[in-house]
């Protein structure tokens, strides 16, 4: 076989390209795997039936504590309500399962909050990166940057995002002095208590739950409380078929 100059150059170029690109690709792949905080991915689990039974008995500890802690306004009416963690009938939290359950179960109270999706559509659509995912997999908001376009509300398939249609302050009865409020014109949502996690604490809803029906921990650590409970028990994720990979689980 004769190799002329053109062929030689072509082959050489291709080889250089492969050799040059491979290490970069490998490095990228490694970075994705090991990553800066690849060792931590926070997750939360709700024991559905236990939580329902305590809610029937009037328990609202997690919701009240969260709303006080984060200065979440209360009482603007259902159209403008701000929700971080709230209670809704099972058939609304899992609308695609409607009809499978008995009537009392369908109407039983289930907790709903931001799912802190592993593949969050709200982050994908935000035009300013005001909503973003932290290294530990939490979806949080930078309220300084939000322009209030509400694209994330259209993007979220869980109704976990709320918009401040007016100044929220008149709707806050007693303010927590160590946490800001939001202002008119920005979207807000559950931040999984990023400010507490930074200090090594658990999210407030998990901490204050008097019945221990909320589980929290690092999904990447097989020994963590949440990993063990998810291994032991069957669990549901909301609208898992959408590919958002929620990190809030419902234990059956």
């Amino acid at each position: 076989m004769r190799i002329n100059r053109r062929k030689f150059l072509k082959a050489g170029g291709a080889a250089t390209l492969v050799m040059g690109v491979l290490p970069v690709a490998q490095a990228l792949a490694e970075k994705r795997q090991s990553g800066e905080a690849a060792d931590v991915k926070w997750g939360l689990a709700v024991d559905l039936r236990a939580c329902w039974e305590h809610q029937q008995a009037g328990c609202r500890e997690c919701m009240d504590a969260c709303h006080y802690e984060h200065n979440v306004p209360v009482g603007q009416g259902s159209k403008e309500e701000i929700k971080w963690i709230w209670s809704a009938p099972f058939k609304e939290v899992f609308p695609e399962l409607e009809g499978v359950w008995e009537e009392d179960l369908a109407n039983s109270a289930a907790l709903a909050l931001c799912n802190h999706c592993d593949n969050p559509p709200c982050v994908r659509v935000c035009p300013t990166k005001a909503t973003f995912q932290t290294k530990t997999g939490i979806t949080v908001m930078d309220y300084h940057r939000c322009i209030g376009c509400r694209y994330c509300m259209a993007g979220c398939p869980y109704g976990a995002r709320s918009f401040n249609f007016r100044d929220p302050r008149p709707f806050i009865d007693k303010a927590n002095p160590s946490y800001p409020t939001r202002e008119k014109g920005v979207v807000e949502k559950c931040n999984l208590c990023a400010e507490r996690l930074a200090d090594g604490l658990k999210p407030l809803c998990v901490d204050v739950c008097p019945h221990g029906v909320l589980y929290f921990g690092n999904l990447k650590d097989p020994q963590s409380e949440i990993s063990r409970v998810l291994k032991d028990r069957f669990s549901l994720q909301r609208k898992a078929e959408l590919g958002t990979r929620p990190k809030v689980y419902y234990l059956l």
């Binding site: 200065n71 309220y143 302050r169 008149p170 806050i172 303010a175 002095p177 800001p180 409020t181 939001r182 202002e183 008119k184």
Partner: peptide, 12 residues
């Protein structure tokens, strides 16, 4: 101050 609370104006 539309978001951050100052101790003087805590009554909201």
């Amino acid at each position: 101050w539309t978001c951050h609370l100052d101790p003087e104006g805590m009554e909201l």
